[in-house]
Design a protein around this nucleic acid. Structure first.
Lengths: 200, 200
DNA sequence: GCTCCTATGTTGACAGTGTTAACTTATGGG
DNA sequence: CCCATAAGTTAACACTGTCAACATAGGAGC
């Protein structure tokens, strides 16, 4: 089916290519669904080949979700590093980076938050997700230490921040933020409201 | 396949039954997916019968999503009506009602926010969704008029509120709010933070 | 250098899905 | 009363995820 002349029987790095291909298909969007067989087709292997590297389609999804959280984490930390010093600046930088990540990888972002709620098996996934949470927590602790933010239970505030960013991201992705109903810059409005709720 | 003796050839109200059955299946298990054929099976009709009432599976999903928004809207307004007078009370009542709706109908709630972002065809869907938005807007306008809330562009603030509630709902549903990381009552924390960001 | 184990890839099958076409049945408006 | 037509059925198609049986080659051990 594929011209075997060019390609060795053993791919060499099929596992990585499967993930990359699937990621690419998730990016192409429209439907945020991809099919395992189509992935195999694009990777130039037979439809059953992926099963030598992943027990399940779910396993592939889980791994992709984990990768997604790692990328999101990196996006946030680099944004924070480049943030302009004062806490307010970093806060906005991180928030914007978060939302931008989601809106420019809608399929992946969706996947990250659909991966089997009940399955606590994926400890790695939870870990990656918690790293994201950690960035927010850290920011809040610094703010409270500096006296810029009210002294409240950091955990609850971090939850509020995460929820706010997640909400904006999804509603934007979904196209539910129609400008005439939601104002010119809902992201800025949301972040401002959030910050004013945290500040002293 | 079914005993035709008891049941008339024509169901009489199959359209409604399909929707109800599908809703029930969405309610049942953690997997928020259901299959059209299984719906038909449970309704006691052949697998192609639904196509006499819905052109697509997507059409059924869209209608269910719309119903979901209507129910959510009702949940919010009744909560608001029973709210204990002062704005803060209503605010919390509405917020809690929103989140409770989501967490007790996770499948439906998910569906509501997955129904084809791009498809502006479903004007009805958008309308129902906007009604939800309207409840929040109304609350904010009252608060500003009473002088309890800062005078800012209501649209942006409403977006912030919606995003916050949506975020809490989804993260709770997804099981990402693990108490040791997020404090004893993340919902209360989030609503408090939000309200404090809105208040004068 | 040869052999053979095993990881990797292929083929073919199975059950189940959404969807359509062709056919059947009843029901209600002329 | 008749028959157009809405409503339901059966059979097929092209898919999907998954598995078992088979094929290949790359390298470890001698």
């Amino acid at each position: 089916m594929q011209d075997t002349t060019n390609r060795p029987y053993h791919h060499g790095d099929l596992r990585r290519e499967i993930i990359e291909t699937a990621m690419a298909m998730l990016h192409e969007d429209k439907g945020w669904q991809f099919t395992l067989r189509e992935v195999a087709r694009r990777a130039g292997v037979s439809h059953a080949a992926p099963y030598k590297h992943f027990p399940d389609k779910a396993a592939l999804l889980a791994e992709m979700a984990m990768l997604g959280f790692e990328r999101l984490h990196k996006a946030m930390t680099t944004a924070k590093a480049k943030g302009p010093g004062p806490l307010r600046g970093e806060f906005f930088a991180v928030g914007r980076a978060y939302v931008r990540f989601g809106t420019s990888n809608p399929g992946l972002y969706r996947l990250m938050f659909s991966a089997e709620a009940g399955k606590a098996v994926n400890v790695h996934l939870s870990e990656s997700a918690l790293a994201v949470f950690g960035v927010v927590t850290e920011l809040l602790e610094r703010g409270q230490a500096e006296g810029v933010l009210r002294k409240r239970d950091v955990r609850g505030r971090a939850a509020a921040c995460w929820a706010q960013m997640h909400g904006i991201t999804m509603l934007t992705m979904e196209g539910l933020f129609q400008l005439e109903k939601v104002g010119p810059d809902p992201l800025d409005a949301a972040l401002t409201t959030l910050l004013e709720g945290l500040e002293n």
